[in-house]
């Protein structure tokens, strides 16, 4: 399949609710400890409906990027996050879009650092600690597979071979 067809296949599936979602009021949560923090959405926003190769070209040299989720059930953003984390331990990964509090766990496992949740989700933030409940961050005491974080940056060489270009962010 040539890249043009692949592009068509992808574009057919993009959902254009970007404007609506970008206008929603959000607050930021860092996903290591679950604290509410002040953080702007990075200027570079990746669309997971585009191919990962195309997105990899865009992140060259970037310190931080956001992945846009057109729908919570669209798992493409999760694979894109994991792919980016696998080639770079340094890049700061944000998630924006149609997110809800139960996405925190999945985002965290895929190496996302900060997620921007809709304002209404603030009800899950503990007033004292200004953090979300641990059960949202880490509902399970065991995982049967490694998280993207645990191999951060380790697959950069392999991806470079496949793409034939530099990929380090």
């Amino acid at each position: 399949m040539n890249s043009m067809t692949m592009q068509n296949l992808n574009q057919k599936q993009s959902v254009d609710n970007t404007a609506v979602l970008q206008e929603q009021r959000t607050f930021a949560v860092e996903l290591r400890g679950g604290k509410v923090i002040e953080a702007d959405v990075p200027a570079l926003v990746l669309d997971p409906t585009h191919s990962w190769e195309e997105n990899f070209q865009k992140i060259q040299g970037a310190d931080s990027v956001a992945i846009f989720f057109p729908k919570a059930v669209d798992g493409r953003g999760l694979s894109l996050a994991a792919r980016i984390r696998e080639i770079s331990a340094q890049i700061q990964l944000h998630a924006i879009g149609a997110l809800h509090v139960d996405m925190i766990y999945f985002l965290r496992r895929c190496g996302v650092d900060i997620c921007h949740l809709p304002e209404k989700s603030k009800a899950v933030v503990d007033e004292q600690t200004q953090a979300v409940k641990k059960s949202l961050l880490q509902p399970f005491s065991l995982h049967y597979q490694q998280s993207a974080d645990s191999i951060a940056g380790q697959l950069a060489d392999k991806v470079q071979v496949v793409l034939g270009t530099q990929v380090a962010a």
Binding site: A72, D74, G75, L78, S79, A82, Y105, F106, Y144, Q145
Partner: peptide, 13 residues
């Protein structure tokens, strides 16, 4: 079974 359990990339296919 173990590996696929809660695998984040396999949850929203």
């Amino acid at each position: 079974r173990q590996w696929s359990t809660f695998h984040p990339e396999l949850a929203f296919l």
